Computed example of a mutant assay.
Amino acid sequence: MGSNQSWVTEFILVGFHLSAKMEKLLFWIFSLFYIFSLLANGTILGLICLDLRLHTPMYFFLSHLAIIDMSYASNNVPKIIFCPFLSV
């Protein structure tokens, strides 16, 4: 059997072209999801810190999961919601 002789040296990633109205709608939807994610994880973290009965290993790891989720959301969502029409 012969080997494949094609050589790909680069990839071009092309996004979807959306109208300005659709971009604004997606911006607000992702912003609301981001705010909801921060509020929900902040509530979980606050409840675990305030209630002494929740200072067990399971809730210790759950609080760390909430912190990690807030960190990932704070890192990725601003990249997602960046819209070219906002920089004008």
Rank of each mutant, 00 (worst) to 15 (best):
F27Q: 03
H64P: 00
D51A: 15
D69S: 14
L62M: 14
A73V: 03
L32G: 15
I48Q: 13
L32M: 10
Y72D: 06
Y34T: 08
M1N: 05
M1L: 08
L86G: 01
L65T: 07
L39Y: 06
G42I: 08
F61N: 06
L26E: 04
W7D: 07
F16R: 06
C83V: 03
L26N: 11
S87H: 00
K79T: 03
C83W: 00
F36N: 08
P84S: 00
V8F: 07
I80G: 01
G46Y: 08
A20Q: 03
A40L: 08
G15T: 13
S63P: 02
L50W: 10
L47R: 15
I48Y: 10
F16C: 06
F85P: 00
G46N: 11
I44Y: 14
D69G: 13
L54M: 10
F16M: 13
L65Y: 12
L86N: 03
A20P: 00
C83Q: 15
I80K: 03
M22G: 01
F11N: 06
Y59R: 15
L50S: 11
G15Q: 05
S71R: 13
S71H: 10
P57E: 07
T9W: 00
I68G: 13
I48G: 13
E10K: 07
N75D: 10
S31F: 05
H17N: 10
W7V: 15
I35F: 13
L25V: 05
H17Y: 07
E10F: 02
D69V: 13
A66I: 14
W28E: 13
T9A: 01
L86A: 02
E10L: 02
E23S: 06
C49W: 09
Y59I: 05
N75I: 11
I81T: 04
L45F: 11
L50I: 06
L32D: 08
M58K: 10
P84C: 00
I35K: 14
F61P: 01
I12E: 07
C49K: 11
S19T: 14
C49L: 12
L50G: 14
I44T: 13
L47V: 07
M22P: 01
F33Y: 15
L18K: 14
F36I: 07
A40E: 02
C83D: 01
M70N: 12
N41D: 06
S19E: 09
T56C: 10
T9M: 01
S87A: 12
L52M: 15
L18R: 08
T56E: 09
M22T: 04
L26C: 07
P57A: 07
I80P: 00
D51I: 10
M58D: 05
P78L: 11
L47E: 12
L18M: 15
H64M: 04
L47G: 05
I48V: 05
W28L: 09
M22C: 14
L47S: 08
T9G: 01
A20D: 09
P57I: 04
M22D: 11
K21I: 04
Q5T: 06
K24P: 00
L62S: 08
L39Q: 05
T43G: 12
L18T: 12
A66R: 09
H17C: 05
L50C: 06
